[in-house]
Write a protein that binds this DNA or RNA. Sequence first.
DNA 1: AATGAATATGTTATAAAATAACAAGTCAAG
DNA 2: CTTGACTTGTTATTTTATAACATATTCATT
Lengths: 162, 162
Amino acid sequence: MRIDAERVFSAHDHAACRRATLERAEEIVAAEGLRLTPVRRRTLEILLESHQALGAYEVLDRLVAAGFARQPPVAYRALDFLVDHGLVHRIRRLNAFAACMRPGEPHRPAFLICDTCQAVAEAPGTGVADAMLAAAGAVGFEIERMSLEAVGRCPACREARA
Amino acid sequence: MRIDAERVFSAHDHAACRRATLERAEEIVAAEGLRLTPVRRRTLEILLESHQALGAYEVLDRLVAAGFARQPPVAYRALDFLVDHGLVHRIRRLNAFAACMRPGEPHRPAFLICDTCQAVAEAPGTGVADAMLAAAGAVGFEIERMSLEAVGRCPACREARA
DNA sequence: AATGAATATGTTATAAAATAACAAGTCAAG
DNA sequence: CTTGACTTGTTATTTTATAACATATTCATT
Ligand SMILES: [Zn+2]
Ligand SMILES: [Zn+2]
Ligand SMILES: [Zn+2]
Ligand SMILES: [Zn+2]
């Protein structure tokens, strides 16, 4: 399979993309003895519908459409669970959430966020995180978590504008 | 002078550090024909009081103490001006703002945020931004802006805990 | 000095994002 | 069946950020 960002930013069989990722998520949840309850599963499905990040309240709207109560904790609790277990990433720059496209593979994602089509992809490789670790190490800073996010224009949207 | 992160995370003559940065900011403002009005100047001074990031409402509290009205736009407008002109950085991960310690020098900062003492420093070098540009370039993504932020423990706080 | 455009401030109100707190339900192990 | 951990339901509130519009100030030009 092509690397993540190339796939996300191109036309692809997203139905298959989504299905495979959801199956992978289910395997992980099963393997770790976690409970992918209805609201959690539906939340993940909602985020897998596209490669765009969704705000908690957009997720909540769609959960309401699926019969859940319109109360912020409903969405935040499901999202927090998914983030805690690596199935969803939080995009701080957008106050939003995006499904992880490679759940189970330990990774330190750097995000590429298209501000034209709103697609969010994980940048290939570990170079960005490695550079951050190196820069921190040089001054004796010990990193626990990082947010590596870039906003700009994806290949398809550059093409379209040109 | 020692590189930024080393200075920020160590005991240093912060009165001089603050004074020098404020002077530098004034030079930039003068050179670019901008107006460092009282509320903007005071906002910058507030952020220069320490190397910790402050939320907009913390800044507002201190502006109130200095005689300005307690209304969010007062703080947000001053902060937006300072951010737009490179005198202050926005730390997305904290929903907060920190004074830039090297105003005028074009840079693509990566932030090191100590979650023990709340100090925020700009990581040395351009390695992190370079890595992000390289990763994006590899998939044809064109970056406009980036947020590169790491949370962890600064040298002093590691020492203290050990 | 008077004019007018651009910039900056004052003010009210609201939107958007996130969490606190506590009660009630579910479920599997002992 | 009971205990204890986890999950959900629900109300309310807090925190962060912006919209919108009126007024005032600045500054270049007449
Ligand atoms: Zn896809
Ligand atoms: Zn795009
Ligand atoms: Zn200092
Ligand atoms: Zn520290």
